[in-house]
C-alpha cells in the first residue's frame, strides 16, 4: 500500500532535455553530459521513495529504510558485478538488456503511453541524478 502511495505522491523529476548517449556492447561508457556523479547524493536518490523509487522493487544496503521491495535483485554488491558503464545502461535503458523487464527506463521520454500530465516529457531522473546513482551503485562492493 505504502508503495503505491509513494509512487502517487512522487515528486518532480527534472524537466531537462535528455542527454544523448552511445551504447557500446552492454554499456554506456561515457558519463551523461560529461557530468561527475556524487555517491552520497546517489544514495539519497536510491533511498527516496518519491524520487528514485528503487526500493519499491529492490532491496539495498540502506538499513534505515525498512520497507524494501523483493521483486528485483538486491543491489548489495552490484558495483562488483558491473562496471560504471554497465550500470549506466541498466538505469537508462534496462529493456535493451532484458526485454519486457518491469524495471522502468530512468532516462527516457519517448515511446511511453498515457503518461500523467505532471510527468509528460520528463525522464524519471535527469543526467546529473543518473550519474549520482551510478556513483553510488559503483561504490556497493562486496
Amino acid at each position: 500500500m505504502r508503495g503505491l502511495a509513494a509512487l502517487l505522491l512522487a515528486g518532480a523529476a527534472a524537466a531537462q532535455p535528455l542527454a544523448p548517449y552511445t551504447v557500446q556492447g552492454d554499456a554506456i561508457a561515457a558519463p551523461l553530459a560529461g557530468l561527475a556523479g556524487d555517491a552520497a547524493r546517489g544514495r539519497a536518490i536510491v533511498a527516496n521513495r518519491q524520487l528514485g523509487l528503487c526500493l519499491l522493487c529492490h532491496g539495498a544496503p540502506i538499513p534505515e529504510e525498512r520497507f524494501q521491495g523483493d521483486l528485483a535483485p538486491n543491489l548489495a554488491g552490484v558495483g562488483t558485478r558491473w562496471s560504471a558503464g554497465q550500470l549506466r545502461l541498466r538505469l537508462v535503458e534496462p529493456q535493451r538488456l532484458v526485454p519486457g523487464t518491469i524495471m522502468p527506463a530512468y532516462h527516457r521520454t519517448e515511446g511511453l503511453r498515457q503518461v500523467g500530465a505532471a510527468w509528460r516529457g520528463k525522464p524519471l531522473l535527469d543526467a546529473q541524478q543518473i550519474e549520482d546513482v551510478v556513483a553510488y551503485l559503483s561504490s556497493l562492493k562486496e
Partner: peptide
C-alpha cells in the same frame, strides 16, 4: 497488458508477474 505511465508498467507485470512478492514491503 499494455504498459502505461512514466513508469511504463502494465497491470499484468504486477498482478500476473509479481504477485506474492513485495512492493516496498507490501504484498502484491
Amino acid at each position: 497488458v499494455r504498459r502505461i505511465g512514466q513508469l511504463d508498467m502494465s497491470c499484468a507485470q504486477c498482478h500476473d508477474g509479481a504477485w506474492d512478492r513485495k512492493l516496498a514491503g507490501n504484498p502484491i
